[in-house]
Design a protein around this nucleic acid. Structure first.
Lengths: 125, 125
DNA sequence: TAGTGGTATGATAAATTCATCATTCCATCA
DNA sequence: TGATGGAATGATGAATTTATCATACCACTA
């Protein structure tokens, strides 16, 4: 589902996130973000992800539809590239957010195990 | 669908984007991002979005599950807040990306209308 | 024209969303 | 204290979207 250009921005934005909302597509984008010039051939993505060719191609097609990546064919091989460096930024910030969140919840877990039941007593230390 | 903490990061990241991948949830998050202290009561979100109460609540529940927002009840009202300022950053970068992309495609459109067929001739000016 | 590298299509299975209704929580007032 | 009402949440099934899989197809090279 691709938004018409005159749709409200919050709807277009939701569709962008939808395009990113799949583990295989995240891996693909991270591989591109880490590659020199954010560029890599399909054959590389294929071997790194271990996906079946047709599955990989389907995910690449949805990324293309949403203009998150661009592709160029040279001779017999197709190479993909991030359409815009802001995609890499998006991934980096998402990672930071998740690390914050995961750190918080393992902290919660640690506290709960260290002082079992303490949170019920009203004692602060 | 919420990821277990030991899932690979790319899967957790995909689920985060999935949590954002709905127009109503984007609107909610943008309202919070724009509100003082990134905080607003449900009643405010209700009137601003025009959603039906139970629908709004469903979306708030998925945002909570993914720890994108937190909620506090005081007396008879519940207030929500962004769990982390990085969520606002994510939205801001997505907006920049989309503005870039939309600018490019309307530029494409303009060129195509200005010089109809010129791209077929091989002439560069 | 055979072969390799990628892509499109179409059917089925799975996950999300939407709509409706029931329930909980808490303040207030009889 | 318990009945009422507003605010928000939860639960359910139907409808829509998205993912998955297998297979057919296209583009280019040798």
């Amino acid at each position: 589902m691709i938004s018409p250009a005159q749709a409200p921005l919050y709807e277009i934005k939701a569709n962008l996130f939808k395009a990113l909302a799949h583990p295989a597509r995240i891996r693909i984008l991270e591989l591109l973000a880490a590659a020199p010039d954010t560029t890599a051939p399909v054959s590389f993505l294929l071997s790194e992800t271990g996906l079946e060719a047709s599955h990989l191609s389907q995910h690449l097609a949805t990324l293309r539809r949403h203009k998150v990546v661009t592709s160029v064919r040279s001779a017999n091989a197709v190479t993909y590239r991030l359409a815009n460096p802001k995609i890499a930024e998006l991934l980096a910030i998402a990672r930071m957010f998740l690390l914050d969140t995961l750190a918080d919840s393992s902290e919660q877990l640690r506290l709960a195990q260290e002082l079992p039941g303490a949170h019920l007593t009203g004692q602060s230390s």
